[in-house]
Design a protein around this nucleic acid. Structure first.
Lengths: 345, 345
DNA sequence: TTTAGCACTCTGTCTTTAAGAGTGCTAAAG
DNA sequence: CTTTAGCACTCTTAAAGACAGAGTGCTAAA
């Protein structure tokens, strides 16, 4: 797959990638020659660059322009050439101050705060998929009577989700009847993931209980409903406007497509979900992404977890010309933080 | 203020406004002459238009271009000339199907769904300020013990807000002790708006209760905390990308400023709040808006209410060249719907 | 294998040109 | 006094041409 390059070609490729990431301008042989440690003339570099182009690592936007990295070039860079420096003091400050300063116990707050941090540290658009509700395990179900006709269902999962929903109780349920139902349900459902609470299971429970109490009908409807509705996931976005600062997005049309994408949560979810299976940090460059709308982008994702159980995915989306090493460093840091702060709570 | 125009000038102004709204191109005298019912030559129209320009209702982007309405021109149009047609079948469909089809009882769902509907029907950006939590009246407070160390506080207001927060209980509270505290608090706080539950009131209650139960310390901390945090308001946005379709926003820089604004919730809140005091539907054209960033935009807002109590504000934001009559019609419809569906629940 | 030199190509910017749209003004007609 | 026709003038926009700059590819020499 990755035909190994000789030392010199690697050097040159690295210089081209790093320069192009920084300047967004095609990199010419003169520029490379200047930053090449050993004295080499631009002509030599030119030959090497022509080779690299033949091999598919570089492309020329047009004759007589400098080269820019191809998708393959970025791939090679990420896999073999990239080196991580320390996080800069600035980044360190941004991250540690906004992450650890406030003690945020609520899971949704932690997540939504993380989007802000991630996007401001990377200057890209960040997206974070919250813990997947449906993969959380059922913990407790409570029903609070509000008044004669309404009740509040509270559903709590092991990962700290708290969902509530107001339901109408058409028939009055006595306190004790409610209690019976609730404790029966808790007993039966405890430990199951929300995924496993299928309609068929609900129906089974329903049949089971019907023999004893017809009044439960209402309670089941609410359970079903609340499960159905809560199966949706939320994707948090941060720094959507950052993408406008990238020169590759100076075309209004591209911007529109991009921003449109951002408004479609299911799509975002799919984009993030594709990667969530893999371990650690995943870099998807250009067409390595499934979704057509981001074929010109790079998506870097990482997963965070509690006790070895994958909870969600954080991602950074930007042009393929992205500061890979920086973004990856920052993301590693964030994922560490998330792992820690979520499992400690 | 609004020096009354004669019939003919009004006609011409209307034609210019309507045409410009439709085409986004300056309107010339020939165009006006064509759509003017009585036969009048373009030369006559030209004279009238020159008058209208002198009076400040029209402006010329440059010599030898057609005229476009000035802010004053739009104002005059909105106040005196605009006529409302029926909603088109399309709009009717969009509105009624997506609003009434699903029965959505949760207030947040209703609101966030409304942004979608409003933006898609108006092709503009819509923003809706949810009911202001802090102006809602305290209804019920509940505390559910989760396990030995944690409890879930549930706070319910008369406007249907349900807020919950996990708190740590450092000391164990017995079921009955908790019950005592909660019912005392409910009794004292019932009917007060969240605004009125100040720190001083909390302190007072605290002193009151301390005489009886030291253990309540924890409970109060949580109350305080949850109130503090929940004072923030949420503004829901829809169709932010619609603004990119407007030709006046083909400049990337303008887009950036606009989208940046959209990410700053407090600002949005302020923009909407400014108008929420007035009754019915308010049209703010260009510099009539306080906020600098939308001085080139028109903001149309309407307020929705339950039982004569203003709950929140819905708004549509777009370029001053906006289809005023259409947007206002749609918004009236939406506000009606909100009033109904919120007070029925 | 590396390098110097040179012709060639392509982009971006600037200028020029021409067409089109619309106005303002003047003078005549109703 | 109001309306209209005619015409010169202005300004914008698009297309076409000119030109400098950057970078390449190739050849021939070191």
């Amino acid at each position: 797959m990755t035909a190994p390059l000789n030392e010199r070609k690697e050097q040159i490729l690295r210089v081209v990638v790093v320069n192009y990431i920084k300047t967004a301008e095609p990199v010419g042989s003169r520029t490379v020659a200047r930053s090449y440690p050993v004295g080499l003339s631009s002509a030599t570099i030119r030959n090497e660059m022509a080779d690299l182009e033949d091999m598919g690592y570089l492309v020329q936007p047009h004759t007589s322009a400098g080269r820019i990295p191809s998708q393959l070039g970025y791939r090679y860079y990420v896999d073999n050439l990239m080196d991580f420096g320390e996080l800069s003091d600035d980044d360190e400050l941004v991250l540690s101050s906004s992450l650890s300063a406030e003690k945020m116990r609520e899971i949704e707050q932690i997540i939504s705060n993380s989007t802000r941090v991630l996007s401001s540290a990377t200057k890209q658009t960040s997206l974070i998929m919250g813990p997947q509700f449906k993969k959380s395990a059922f913990h407790q179900l409570r029903i609070l009577p509000l008044d004669e006709k309404r009740g509040l269902v509270v559903l709590i999962t092991d990962t700290g989700f708290i969902k509530n929903k107001v339901i109408n109780l058409q028939q009055q349920l006595s306190q004790s009847e409610l209690h019976q139902v609730v404790s029966y349900l808790n007993q039966k459902l405890y430990g199951l993931t929300i995924d496993q609470v299928t309609t068929s299971l609900i129906n089974e429970l329903k049949r089971d209980l019907f023999r004893r109490l017809e009044i439960l009908e209402q309670a089941f409807i609410l359970l079903e409903e609340s499960l159905k509705e809560e199966k949706q996931i939320r994707v948090f976005l941060g720094g959507t406007t950052n993408i406008l600062n990238q020169p590759e997005f100076k075309d209004v049309d591209k911007i529109r497509r991009m921003l449109n994408l951002f408004e479609q949560e299911p799509l975002l979810f799919k984009i993030l979900e594709d990667n969530s299976s893999e371990d650690g940090i995943v870099v998807r460059i250009g067409s390595e992404n499934e979704c057509d709308d981001i074929k010109e982008c790079t998506l870097i994702t990482g997963t965070y977890r509690i006790h070895d159980k994958t909870l969600g995915t954080v991602g950074v989306l930007g042009p393929t010309r992205m500061d890979y090493s920086h973004v990856i460093s920052v993301m590693r840091r964030l994922v560490d933080y998330l792992n820690q702060s979520l499992s400690s709570s």
